[in-house]
Design a protein around this nucleic acid. Structure first.
Lengths: 168, 168
DNA sequence: ATGAGTGCAAAAAGTTTGCACCGCT
DNA sequence: AGCGGTGCAAACTTTTTGCACTCAT
């Protein structure tokens, strides 16, 4: 991953790469930084796209070189990455579960194109204010939120018949 | 279901109960209004709580009286009810998929208590405005949205130790 | 050395499908 | 009669678990 990224994250140590952050997390739990866990974190943070568990299994379980990461270990490790605050799990309107980077990545929400299934990220201060207002009104201790706005993206509205894609 | 409810829904015929609306939908597709489908809709609209597919299977597949509704038919019919616009399917942060009334029920979103798993409904005009702004900014044709704010509800913050509940 | 981690196979959980029989219309 | 619907069993998809062996520390 590009070292130009700024891992600003409040009071958390901001100098760490995701890999280092994961090591720290594992250490704090008496867990070990194995070659499988290393390969998995490196892979996950080598790009920024959203992905599902099975994508990783495909990529890591049958590769030619060692180490490989078996299906159960992929699932186990993804959970750890979520616990460690490195990844976030989101469920799409279709029911698909995908992961995305969370560590050192700004809070955001998504526009979901129901034609091409693309996810577009956006940030909104108004939403943060709304959260605060709700917390106040319902005396609710907010820990997070998930907003997905679905519809049809610009591309799919233009090339309507150019590249047919299947429905959700 | 209480006939005092107002089934206002834009240009759609607003005089219909959910059952009548479902009949209309089935009719328009050349499908039949069978005793299973009737029992299922009646059951679903006899109360307002959120529920999962399996709840219905438990309730309808093993009852003493006829008709019963088998597991596959419950799933098939729930899909039809979603298609008909009577139900909405939402996925909770935990990954659980639940259904809720959509027909004749105002647009709303949820606060989700991660302690007791309760869902609290709320409405927000600000959110509708935000949607419009996003549509404009991204030239995105919005068809819907789903916002879930998670945290801890008032009850769970007060009786913190009174009734222990398991984590998510 | 020793306890955590891994892969394998199997189990679970949730949902869908093929098919023969049933029953509206 | 004929087509849609249903139940049953089985298949499928996705995720989790038990267990013996392996490996990081």
């Amino acid at each position: 991953m590009p070292e130009s990224l700024d891992f600003s994250l409040g009071q958390v140590n901001v100098a760490l790469t995701p890999i280092e952050r994961f090591q720290e997390f594992l250490d704090s739990r008496g867990k070990r930084f194995t070659s499988q866990r290393r390969l998995l974190v490196e892979t996950v943070f080598s790009r920024h796209e959203h992905f599902e568990a099975d994508d990783l299994v495909e990529e890591l379980a049958y590769r030619s070189e060692e180490p490989r990461v078996s299906r159960p270990t992929v699932y186990r490790t993804l959970s750890e990455l979520v616990d460690a605050g490195l990844l976030r799990k989101i469920s799409l309107p279709s029911g698909r579960l995908v992961y995305e980077h969370d560590y050192g990545y700004p809070q955001h929400d998504h526009l979901y194109c129901q034609k091409c299934r693309k996810l577009i990220e956006f940030q909104s201060d108004a939403l943060i204010q709304l959260r605060a207002a709700l917390a106040e009104q319902y005396q609710f201790q907010v820990t997070g939120h998930r907003l997905i706005v679905q519809g049809v993206c610009l591309d799919c509205r233009s090339h309507r018949r150019k590249r047919p894609v299947d429905l959700i």
